[in-house]
Each structure stands twice: as structure tokens, then as C-alpha cells.
């Protein structure tokens, strides 16, 4: 039965139909979480005693940064599954994740920089976390550029899977090396973005936003994957029928 389920899930048509039913629910849950997170984050949580109200940027910056790493790992795992078991759907998931991950990385970078302005007095500091995010953005852009450069999309997806796997081995090394470099070149005087202990009134909106971002990724990756499936299956009967009825 288990095997059967996976076989069914891996069939593009089945995936297209099931994900179509799933997306509205995920989107609704995501909206609800976002609204709750915004309410608790912007209205309920008190201002920070050091940073005032500027710390509220954290409720976007930190979830975006978490998701940027998480999505890269998902992309590599999906790519590996696609490479090893030749499951096309996993390849589709991997490449559909790339642009979402890149946009979260971009968001984490820009919000980090905007948060840095009132904290550090400049728009950009070579802080370990921001520098890691910058390199992560380059890794994502490499994946996207490689995918777009290869004409045959199946080959492209497999090449991207290899690149994502190489990247995922390197991310911890890059992260560690950047942290190490940062402690050498800058004293501990710089205010770190994260706080050692976080009050419950700030933790609740942070977790709400983090879950909202996760659900957001879930439904957007399904939307992208559906497009990718349509594109790949455009010459099959069911896609042509579908196009007729729309």
C-alpha cells in the first residue's frame, strides 16, 4: 500500500489534481497565521527596552533567514531523491523551490540591512549572518542560472540536483568559515541581531510568523510545481483536455 501511494503521488496527473485541492487550504491557513503573527508582533508585543520598536523587523528577518537555509536543504534532498530513484516529481519540487528560496534569502538580506541601519548606523556591516546570507544568495542564483542555461529541462533538473548537493555540503563550511572570519575581523562590540534570551511575548509572534512562512513556502512551491508539471506534460492527453475545459 505504501509503495502504491508513492507511485500514485509520483504520477504527474494525480499530483496536479491533489495539489490543486490542497493549495486553497494551505493558503488560508497561511493567511490566518500571518494575520495572527502580525497582530501579536506589531500590536501586542511590547517595544524592546534596548532597540525600541525597530526589533519588530525580526519577525520578518529571522523567519526569512531560517527558510532560506531550510529551502536549500529541501532542494538538495529533493534533488537527491530525483537523481537516485529517478522520480520526476522530486526534480520538479527541487527546481520549483529555487526561486522561492532565493526570494527569501533576498528578503532576509534586505531586512537585515534595514534593521542594521538604526542598530549599527550603516546600511551594511560585514556581520557573519548577513555575509552568509549573501553567499547563500549567490548559491541560489547559480542554481537558477544553471537551470535556465540548459535547454533540455530534464537534463537541467538533474544538473541542478548535483549543484544543490555540492552546495549543501558546502553551506555548513561556508557558514563556519564566515563566523570564524567575522570573530577575527570584528570585536564583539557589534550588536548581534539575535538576542541571547527572548521574552515570551516576542517568541509567540516569531513562531507564528515562522509557521506562516513555512506554510507559504508549501503552497507556493506546489503552485510552481504545478506549472512545471503542465509545461513538461503539455503533449499528453490529460493536459490537453485540461486546457480545453479551462
Amino acid at each position: 500500500m505504501f509503495n502504491n501511494f508513492f507511485h500514485k503521488m509520483a504520477s504527474p496527473r494525480y499530483f496536479y489534481n491533489i495539489s490543486g485541492q490542497l493549495i486553497p487550504w494551505l493558503a488560508a491557513a497561511c493567511m490566518a497565521l500571518f494575520l495572527a503573527g502580525l497582530y501579536y508582533g506589531l500590536v501586542k508585543a511590547p517595544p524592546d527596552y534596548q532597540q525600541g520598536d525597530s526589533y519588530r523587523i525580526m519577525f520578518i528577518h529571522v523567519p526569512a533567514a531560517w527558510m532560506s537555509m531550510f529551502i536549500y536543504v529541501v532542494m538538495a534532498v529533493a534533488g537527491a531523491i530525483g537523481l537516485i530513484w529517478h522520480i520526476k516529481l522530486a526534480e520538479v519540487m527541487a527546481i520549483s523551490s529555487a526561486s522561492i528560496g532565493a526570494s527569501f534569502t533576498f528578503l532576509a538580506l534586505v531586512t537585515g540591512s534595514i534593521w542594521g541601519k538604526p542598530m549599527w548606523g550603516t546600511w551594511w556591516v560585514w556581520d557573519a549572518r548577513l555575509t552568509s546570507e549573501l553567499i547563500l544568495l549567490f548559491l541560489y542564483l547559480g542554481v537558477i542560472a544553471l537551470y535556465n542555461a540548459i535547454d533540455d529541462k530534464r537534463t537541467a533538473a538533474r544538473a541542478v540536483a548535483i549543484l544543490a548537493l555540492v552546495g549543501v555540503v558546502n553551506i555548513p563550511i561556508i557558514h563556519y568559515s564566515v563566523e570564524w572570519w567575522n570573530t577575527l575581523h570584528q570585536g564583539p562590540t557589534v550588536t548581534k541581531l539575535d538576542k541571547p534570551s527572548i521574552h515570551l511575548s516576542m517568541l509567540i509572534p516569531l513562531l507564528l510568523m515562522a509557521f506562516a512562512f513555512k506554510l507559504y513556502y508549501a503552497f507556493v512551491v506546489l503552485m510552481r510545481a504545478r506549472c512545471e508539471v503542465l509545461e513538461r506534460e503539455r503533449h499528453t492527453g490529460w493536459v490537453r483536455e485540461l486546457a480545453e475545459t479551462k
Binding site: 553567499i135 547559480g142 558546502n170 563550511i173 563556519y176
Partner: peptide
């Protein structure tokens, strides 16, 4: 190896490889 078959491989190659050289 990933870009060898591509016409404009050179530009993409630097984007793929340079971030990995950082550590």
C-alpha cells in the same frame, strides 16, 4: 562538468564556483 555543454558556460561557471571558494 556541469557547464561543459553550454554555449555561454563561462559566465555561469564563475557564478557556480566562486561562492564555493569562499571558505
Amino acid at each position: 562538468a556541469l557547464t561543459v555543454g553550454l554555449r555561454k558556460g563561462g559566465m555561469i561557471l564563475s557564478l557556480l564556483v566562486l561562492p564555493l571558494y569562499v571558505p
